[in-house]
């Protein structure tokens, strides 16, 4: 493989994909980064990784996405990848209620291992399986509101919502980061806005232009 010159980007955001095994994390990633879907892809062992750049509010954002294994046994390995992540897509399968029941446990995982202010989006995947829907949209939406999470339903199979999900979380991260910078400025001037709840850690969004 030839050396590839890094494409230009303004921000680099690390995002993790988490959730029970078999909910479609790897396919969400492959649909988003390569527009590919594989009905019977292999299970993820440890972690996998892919990147994609998007445009948000005139900026080029490069998403570095870590896809983690869903099985409990791998938690010790996968939780190490939460470090430095500014976003998490917490995925469940809309046709398997058990995977939604476990969302709370995954949130705890994030609380224990991720940065405090990580942006979390709840993703109900496999929305194409309408006839097998086991988790109602309202139920998931209510849960998301209660826990202050963004929410979307997607189908990696027919692409519904996939780009939107990534676009939304990355834009949200970018906005919060800009707001943080603003808040920092205001703090210096003596006042912090009460509504600023998410404070992304320094160094997570690295401004970079041109090749290395």
């Amino acid at each position: 493989m030839a050396t590839r010159v890094d494409e230009e980007y303004d921000y680099l955001f690390k995002v993790v994909l988490i959730g029970d095994s078999g909910v479609g994390k790897s396919n969400l990633l492959s649909r988003f980064t390569r527009n590919e879907f594989n009905l019977e892809s292999k299970s993820t062992i440890g972690v996998e990784f892919a990147t994609k750049s998007i445009q948000a509010e005139g900026k080029t954002i490069k998403a570095q996405i870590w896809d983690t294994a869903g099985q409990e046994r791998y938690r010790a390995i996968t939780s190490a990848y939460y470090r430095g992540a500014v976003g998490a897509l917490l995925v469940y399968d809309i046709s398997k209620h058990g995977t939604f029941d476990n969302v709370e446990r995954w949130l705890k995982e994030l609380r224990d291992h991720a940065e405090a202010n990580i942006v979390v989006m709840l993703v109900g995947n496999k929305s194409d399986l309408k006839q097998f829907k086991a988790v109602e949209t309202d139920e998931a939406m209510g849960f998301a509101e209660q826990h202050n999470l963004a929410f979307i339903e997607t189908s990696a199979l027919d692409s519904t919502g996939v780009d939107t999900a990534f676009q939304r979380i990355l834009t949200e991260i970018y906005r919060l980061m800009s707001r943080r910078n603003l808040a920092a400025d205001e703090a210096q001037a003596g006042g912090i806005k009460a509504g600023t709840t998410i404070d992304l850690n320094k160094g997570t969004g690295e401004k970079k232009g041109g090749c290395c």
């Binding site: 493989m1 030839a2 050396t3 590839r4 890094d6 990784f49 892919a50 990147t51 290395c212």
Partner: peptide, 10 residues
């Protein structure tokens, strides 16, 4: 011969 983290990983 690969110098990009993503490509290396891939």
């Amino acid at each position: 011969g690969i110098h990009d983290f993503g490509d290396l990983f891939q």
